[in-house]
Simulated assay, not measured.
Amino acid sequence: MRWKNLMEQTVYENRWFRVNLADVELPDGRHLDHYLIRMRAVAVATVVNEANEVLLLWRHRFITDTWGWELAAGVVEDGEDVAVAAAREMEEETGWRPGPLTHLLSVEPSNGLTDAVHHIYWSERAEYVGDPEDDFESDRREWVPLKLVPDMVARGEVPAANMAAALLMLHHLRLG
């Protein structure tokens, strides 16, 4: 059954997202008002080194008041290549410049509410270039053994679904 978006009107907008109100026609002909969030693409990156350790950030998310492990991530700027954005975010947030990036997966973390797409990349090497420019993004940055990832996800230490999916995929690719 397909829902039809007949029209959208923006009710709020800033540089990161728009909140729209849509007139949606249901398969039985009824209509409903549905709020949705239109978002910019997000680029995510990490590296898995020769010891099968993954570079992670330990950070607090004030919205949910939770701590957890994440990968470096941020919005793709207008006209910016997604892989370039992923590399930029990783360097800004960790102080590590990734080698050639490989696309791992793209996910829609909340497709019932937003059109956000997170494009996740990884590299097999990185060069430390100094303290992170955006050191306020995380409490610490650590190389974590990839073999620990499934248990970390199971314990809720990787609360963001997009990050959990990426880390489990990397675990599968490198150790599975």
Rank of each mutant, 00 (worst) to 15 (best):
T114N: 04
A45N: 05
G74D: 01
A41F: 05
R2M: 10
D28T: 09
R88C: 07
A72S: 01
A83C: 08
R155T: 10
D135K: 14
W69D: 01
L56G: 00
W122C: 00
K4V: 13
E70R: 10
L104K: 15
S110M: 05
I63A: 15
A41W: 08
D33A: 14
V42P: 01
R61N: 14
V82R: 12
L55E: 00
N52T: 09
M7E: 15
A72P: 00
L167C: 13
M90P: 01
T94E: 00
R2W: 09
V47K: 00
V107C: 02
N49P: 03
Y35M: 15
T102D: 14
A116D: 02
G29E: 02
V11G: 02
N111P: 15
R140V: 04
A51E: 13
V19L: 13
V82N: 04
R59N: 11
V82G: 05
N5M: 02
T94L: 00
D78Y: 05
L146G: 06
V47M: 01
A161G: 14
W143N: 10
A87Q: 06
I37M: 14
V24Q: 04
M169H: 14
P145S: 08
R15Y: 11
K4Q: 12
A45T: 03
L170S: 08
G112K: 04
A73P: 00
V76T: 09
M7L: 13
L168R: 09
E133V: 15
E124M: 10
V54W: 07
A22R: 09
V24C: 07
D33E: 14
E70K: 11
E77V: 03
A166I: 12
V75L: 14
V48I: 10
A116K: 13
E127C: 00
T66W: 00
D81V: 02
D23C: 10
D28N: 12
N14A: 06
A87G: 14
H118F: 05
W143G: 04
L173T: 08
L101Y: 06
L170H: 06
D65T: 04
Y35W: 12
D135E: 14
L101H: 06
A51P: 03
V117W: 06
L148N: 03
E93W: 06
T66K: 13
M90Q: 11
E50D: 13
V149S: 11
H171M: 07
M152D: 04
R61C: 00
T102N: 12
L173S: 03
A126L: 03
A126W: 12
E89T: 03
D151K: 08
L167P: 11
V48L: 01
D33R: 12
D78R: 13
M90F: 12
D134T: 12
D33I: 08
S106I: 09
R97S: 06
R30F: 09
L173Q: 13
K4F: 15
H171C: 07
P159W: 15
A22K: 07
N162Q: 10
Q9T: 09
Y128N: 09
E89L: 11
R40V: 06
R88G: 08
W69C: 00
N14T: 07
V84R: 08
D139T: 13
Y121Q: 04
T102I: 09
P98A: 02
R15A: 12
L26K: 10
A87I: 02
E93A: 11
D131I: 13
N162D: 02
L21K: 11
E142T: 09
E142M: 10
M1K: 09
H34G: 03
P145D: 07
H171L: 08
T102A: 11
T102G: 02
L36E: 11
